[in-house]
Design a protein around this nucleic acid. Structure first.
Lengths: 201, 201, 201, 201
DNA sequence: AATGAATGAGTTTTCATTCAT
DNA sequence: AATGAATGAAAACTCATTCAT
């Protein structure tokens, strides 16, 4: 809402963000109370409204700070095996997801509750899929990937697979290590994308 | 809670279920009010408590009735192409998801809110993955599927891919038809599972 | 808002109206609290909202019940002195105003605060002025009143004079009895309206 | 409260008065916020309290500056028609009222809310009525006005008529021009005061 | 003098749940 | 069984006023 004009204000705003994260992780979005966030931040209820207009707004700020949802598929053109770079990206994603697991649950909640957040999610999903699709197309051009695959829908599906695994592992508590997750993901991406005749040779 | 003893009671209970579905689809779980459900069902607020103890309980009943989440991978052993049966299963799943999209969003919401529902989801996910893993194992035994794949994690990932696509398509409103979804899914399952050298031949 | 369906409900609604009047008269509109109205009515805060949506709404109902603002100029055609009937009307108005003085102050307050109430006031003022104008026109026709007077603006002015006196006397506490008020009003109406040559004869 | 000691202080105080007028006219008294007044004046919230103790105080100052409520009946003894001077006074009053209409509404509001302001209003009404009564008495002495009229109550009534017309015209938005208002007022004052036999002659 | 952040009491409003009829 | 009114705890939000800088 308003950017703090003094150092003191900046400190309070920062404290509110930290407090909000704590409360959201503990109680979820619906059950989080503004008063709790404020008291967690060590300030009066009213001070909350000096910096934020609503629970939604502070949650958006908390999620932004958490750098959530980062998955940036990269293609190392010169690498002998292009899937190594992709796997590294997935590892980073899983690790980040794991360390923000409670927050990711809150993200599910707000996405279910608020169309605005749902829109953000849709747009991010699209952006990621477009990027992934570019990688797939590049692999096809280099003769590595199956040219029959339609890059965009394939990207959608393979991206979804990753985030879904993360959700089951870290939110629902399925028993899978990051290594296992990376290995599984990598194997399937590789199999799904690779041109068969090529590999068979 | 209590099973209705009279025909009249059964009618009221049924009306409440219908009303609850309407209200949940319209307002989501958090914003649904017991009074609205009752009035939608054409009965008094108090009557709700004759048949249900809480919003969670009636939601569970509504979801049960909606037969949601059905995905039953089947393997037709004698079929020349085992993926046809799988694709049929996926089509059924997508179609069912599409016609219950609003309810699926409510399912996301309650899963985010309530650990009990989260548990149910986890158990169902596991059950489905076990079944899918059996299919994969059978395909490996018949020499169709890549023997290097670990059936259970692979099943987890491929199942997740399907439900994730459904969520993006029908809840977030991504523009994909059921045909496209089935095609994409099928292609990836096939590529991911199939033994390359085999197919290349 | 909702009409009570049971006798008990009707009783509660009535109690709220009585309580509201008490509280409004004691505290005015702005300082009246819903909780006070409810407790004055002997019911819980929440019950207020069963019957009314807002303080404005219950005030409108209270004012309606108080039959405020009644001024109905009548012309007794056969009477030798038509001003006697008018004076009786004014007396009734002053008496009614006196016994609702505190409420009249609240009416001033809400008219200053709320455009909706201001509109009602304007429409009532117009309706009254039209009626008064008819009386003036009738008097002109019978040769009693100065034909030069434009009935409607004159009516506006003379009506205003009456309500203004009432306000100063009963709200501001000017020291004037109802008799004095009626006498003053009557004298001025008579002088203002009467055709001079006629009376001079 | 405190008179500003420096030129800078005087400027801030003046800015607050201007800002307050703007805010009061826009939002009314109850809905005006100190913070808005300060920001409208281009200074910090806290600075308000350097010059004023309360919203009431600054409103009193704003109203004082607006020179509201000026109605000074004058009697030109030598004029052939004494009502011409009175009508001029009324015109000035209507014009002033028109250009301060929003503020006049705020005056109604604060008079309804605050007994102190009500008292001021009562005293001003009395002072004005005394002055008007003197004019009436002078007219009676010169044989122009009906000697039967009791000057003070008559003055009260005729004054009230004027301010009431102004309220309906400029606050409630009745469709009457200043000319019409002056004409109506003049006609009624003349009729009401003039000795009939005299004029008839 | 000015600033603008902090305070926290005060009110409205909602709604799951109970209960008398 | 059904009714629908009553309950009252709970939470959001506002804003006059204070105060440290």
């Amino acid at each position: 809402m308003t950017e703090p004009a003094t150092a003191r204000g900046a400190r309070t705003r920062a404290a509110l963000l930290v407090g909000a994260r704590t409360v959201f992780e503990r109680d979820g979005f619906t059950d989080a109370r503004i008063a709790d966030i404020a008291s967690e931040a060590g300030c009066a209820t009213g001070s909350f409204y000096t910096y934020f207009t609503s629970k939604e707004e502070i949650l958006a700020a908390v999620l932004y700070d958490a750098q959530h949802d980062v998955m940036r598929p990269t293609l190392d053109v010169d690498a002998p095996d292009p899937f190594v770079a992709l796997a590294e990206g997935h590892r980073r994603y899983f690790e980040n997801y794991a360390s923000n697991a409670r927050l990711m649950l809150v993200l599910e909640e707000i996405a279910a509750l608020d169309p605005t957040f749902r829109d953000v999610r849709r747009r991010r999903g699209e952006a990621l899929a477009r990027r992934t699709a570019e990688v797939i197309a590049a692999l096809q051009e280099r003769g590595v990937a199956d040219p029959e695959l339609d890059p965009y829908p394939t990207a959608r599906a393979l991206d979804g697979l990753v985030s879904h695994l993360a959700y089951y592992a870290f939110v629902l508590g399925e028993d899978m290590s990051v290594d296992e997750l990376v290995a599984t993901t990598n194997r399937i991406w590789r199999n799904a994308l690779t041109l068969k005749s090529l590999e068979a040779s």
